[in-house]
């Protein structure tokens, strides 16, 4: 895996993992689709590993990349 990061979402201070009770932290994550993967940085719980994908990211960048890959 390369060190390149395609997209970064900063972890806002007010986001807390409900299960673990600790703040989310900017974490190295990866999006995978149709045998392609994209390293990204997203807020995630450092303990349970729950990765948070905000709505504007899901319906924006993620959706547009999905559409491009679907027709590759």
């Amino acid at each position: 895996m390369t060190d390149k990061v395609y997209y970064t979402v900063e972890a806002e201070d007010n986001l807390i993992c409900r299960k673990c009770g600790i703040p989310l932290e900017k974490t190295e994550a990866v999006f995978e689709y149709l045998d392609n993967s994209f390293p990204v940085e997203l807020p995630a719980c450092p303990k349970c590993g729950f990765v948070y994908v905000p709505e504007d990211l899901a319906l924006g960048k993620v959706l547009s990349v999905e559409k491009v890959l679907e027709d590759k």
Partner: peptide
């Protein structure tokens, strides 16, 4: 209050 979805899988790079 709201709902959305995506088809990509997401995980931390340690998994």
């Amino acid at each position: 209050k709201g709902a959305y979805s995506h088809r990509m899988k997401v995980r931390t790079r340690y998994e």
